[in-house]
Amino acid sequence: MIDLLATRYYYLVTFLLLGVGAYMMIGNRNLVKKVIGMNIFQTGIFLFFIAAAYLEGASPPVLTAEAPHVSPLPHVLILTAIVVGVSLTAVALGLIVRIYADYGTLDAEVLWEVRHDD
């Protein structure tokens, strides 16, 4: 078990990041921090993919480099996923700007109460 943890520690980090991200999204009252949590959560998954593609002692997936290469496909996938993540963050921040303009606060619980008073 210890051995597994020592050699596969990046998976451990992955799930640590997932946990931290999820906790931030749930536990934090600040909307911006929630969005940061979302980003950390996604980063955890990105790392998961990249770690899966990693091969001990392999070179980067470039034609000029020597074989064996690490698997290039997950890199490509994650590149796309990062783009998606960035646009999501942009939209989220845009919404947050609007919420702040409207309510003057970013505290989720206060906003929730305001909503219920409407």
């Binding site: 999204m25 969005v35 998954i45 999501l88 919404l95 609007r98 919420i99 409207d102 309510y103």
Partner: peptide
Amino acid sequence: DSGRSAIAALRYLLIGTVGAS
């Protein structure tokens, strides 16, 4: 452009992103 829908959209975004992730 209402505050209410912005909050709902953000909530939707956060949860939806978790789902997609």
